[in-house]
Each structure stands twice: as structure tokens, then as C-alpha cells.
Design a binder for these strands. Structure first.
Lengths: 182, 182
DNA sequence: AACAAGAACGAACGGTCGTGCGCTATCGGA
DNA sequence: TCCGATAGCGCACGACCGTTCGTTCTTGTT
């Protein structure tokens, strides 16, 4: 039994997650991906039975990268308001630090596939829903702690925070960094 | 001199603007576009010297459609606050009415091309900048009229309005219509 | 040392892409 | 009524796409 397969599979998927934010997840071709990772198209392809499976695996990998870079460290701070701040700060930081070269992976991919039905789209909106649920729960907890006005509609507040983050992401990738916003 | 050329060119571009919000402006192929408009690929291609010119012309056409559907009627109401409200309402309405089948044309296209340098990207961000400038000017005028607090940062406020509209657009196209927001 | 499993490769396939070329209708102006 | 301009078509091209297949190297097990 050999064990270097999983290692190169991981390398492929990390490269794919980065490239997908630039070329798009459908625009990303096996040829370019293979070239960027330094192996043959067919050798790469053998790791996944189809392009769709590659796309799904890429989304999963991007989710793990995103979780490591923003969710996990932000959720460490226990209180609701700290988590909300942490999520927002970490999100902006991961955009500015170019964790993905083309900005937030899910903003890119969701915008690309949200009109094209299929497993890829379903997976993408699933992840996005998880993110907004995270935001919402942080707001809820903050309200329970009294650090956020209980009169606020939690869905509305989470929506607003999400909207700021997303537009901040979009404007940053479209220009420079004039995003001292929060 | 014949005159039916400009008519079919117009028909092509309207179809292209619609399709681009679904397939993406790079994903949209000459073959599919020709099929959807009922003519041959080469006959269609003859109207534009290259795909890039088709894309640029499509952006221009989308801008005109967008202007007709949201900007022009909203700007009719003279006062700043009315224009701001009008722009927001009209924007949401044009998304809900599916003026473009895949939601706001420029939200789709900007997200797609903002990482790929070139004339298409430049044209797209140019239009988007025009839109935010419109928002900003409406805020400014509203402040001058006293209908909006002068202490507010106009850039910040325009940013917030824009963020709500864009996320509303994204959520609508990704699901149903739970967007009673403003 | 021999063997089997697995990783990666090269070449080729059918299909679609954007792009040219040359022909045939069709129409407006003389 | 004829003519020249032009809209549109059919066809073909080279490039690249995702995918398949048989082969070659590498490696762990016996």
C-alpha cells in the first residue's frame, strides 16, 4: 500500500481552491491545474473520476481552508459578541492576506454557480448557508449575553454584517485596500 | 444600404445580456448564443470582429437595459432622498422581475471578471463605479436637503445601501424571495 | 529477490470552442 | 430594372476541452 497518493491529492486540491477563485470553478481546466501543480493531466485526473467530483472535492478543501483561516480561530473566543467580531475581523483579514488569490472562495464560486443547478451549486449554497447560520448564532448568543440589543432582529443583523463583509471583499479584489470598514 | 443588420445585432445583444447572467460572460459561447437567437454561429460572429468585442458590446447593452429599468425611472424623482429610495426600490424590483434571468447583470459579471485583467474587466468595473457614484450623489443631495443626517459619512452610507442591495440580489437568485429588506 | 498495488505518464478519442473564408440570398438606390 | 452593398449561411481550420486506455516507474510486502 502506497501513501503518497493522498499527499499529492491534497496538493492538487489546494492549488485548485486557489485557482478557482481566479479562473472560476468551471473555468478552471484540468490542463491548467495539472500544469500549475506540475503533473500530467491524466495523472491528475486519475485522482477524481470526473471533473464534477474534482469540483466537489475542491469545495470541500476550500471549506477546510476557510475554516482554518477564519472560523476556527474566531470561534475560540467564547462570548457571542467576541465571536461575531472575530468572524468579521478574520474574514476581512483572510481576504486582505489573500488566503485565496481571488478573494473569498465562496463569494466567487457561489456567484458563479448559483444559476446552474446541480450538485456543485447545492454544495456551494450549503456551505454559504452554514456561514450565515454561524453569524446568526453569534448574534443570538450576543443578545442573550446582553451585549447586543435584544430588540434587533437577529436575521437582519446577520444579513447586514454578511453584506458588509461581502461587499468589502468585492471592492478589495476589484481595487486596493480602502476598506477600513466595520 | 440595408437596415435589418442593426436590428438583429440588437436582438443578439439582448439575448447575450440575458444569457451572460446565467452562463457567465466568458462561459457564454457563440454557439449557444446563436442557437438561442436562431441564427448561425458564423452569421452572428460577423457582427463582431471577436468574442471580446461581443462581450464589450454586451456590457454596453446590459448597461442600457439596466439604465432603462432602474436608473432612469428612479432619477425622475428630483429630490436626493427620493432618488436614493427610487434606486434601491427599482434595483430590487428589477431583480425580482428577472429583467435579467440570473439576477443583476453587473453583480454576476463583475464577480466573474474582477480577477482577470483586460478590457472586459475594465469596462465592467467602470459601470459599477458609475452605479456607486450615483448612490453617493443621491446621499449627498439628500444631506444637502436635510433629509439625511449631515453627520453621516456619505461614502459609508452609499456602501451600506449597495451592500444590502447586492446581498439581497445574491440571496434572491440563490433561493426564493424572502427579501423584504430596506 | 520476486511480486502485486498504486501513482503517474503519453497518446489518442470525440466534442466544442473561437475564428476565418467564400458563397448566396436580399434589399435600397440608380 | 438592374447593380452593388451587405446580412447570413455552410464549411473547415486549429486549439483546447474532459475523458479513456495501456504502459512504465515506484514502493511496500512476502
Amino acid at each position: 500500500m502506497r501513501s503518497d497518493g493522498v499527499r499529492s491529492r491534497e496538493a492538487i486540491l489546494r492549488a485548485a481552491a486557489g485557482l478557482a477563485t481566479v479562473e472560476g470553478i468551471t473555468g478552471l481546466s484540468l490542463g491548467r491545474l495539472a500544469e500549475s501543480v506540475g503533473m500530467s493531466k491524466s495523472g491528475l485526473f486519475a485522482h477524481f473520476g470526473s471533473k464534477e467530483e474534482l469540483q466537489l472535492a475542491t469545495i470541500d478543501t476550500a471549506q477546510r481552508i476557510f475554516a482554518d483561516a477564519v472560523v476556527t480561530p474566531a470561534v475560540a473566543g467564547g462570548s457571542g459578541i467576541d465571536r461575531l467580531r472575530g468572524l468579521a475581523d478574520r474574514f476581512l483579514a483572510h481576504v486582505e492576506d489573500a488566503v485565496f488569490p481571488g478573494g473569498c472562495f465562496f463569494a466567487s464560486v457561489a456567484a458563479e454557480v448559483d444559476t446552474r443547478p446541480g450538485p456543485v451549486r447545492d454544495r456551494a449554497v450549503e456551505v454559504v448557508d452554514g456561514w450565515t447560520a454561524l453569524l446568526r448564532q453569534a448574534v443570538l448568543d450576543a443578545q442573550e449575553e446582553g451585549t447586543v440589543d435584544r430588540a434587533e432582529d437577529p436575521d437582519q443583523l446577520a444579513f447586514e454584517v454578511d453584506a458588509y463583509l461581502l461587499l468589502g471583499n468585492a471592492q478589495f479584489v476589484a481595487s486596493g485596500d480602502p476598506e477600513a470598514l466595520a
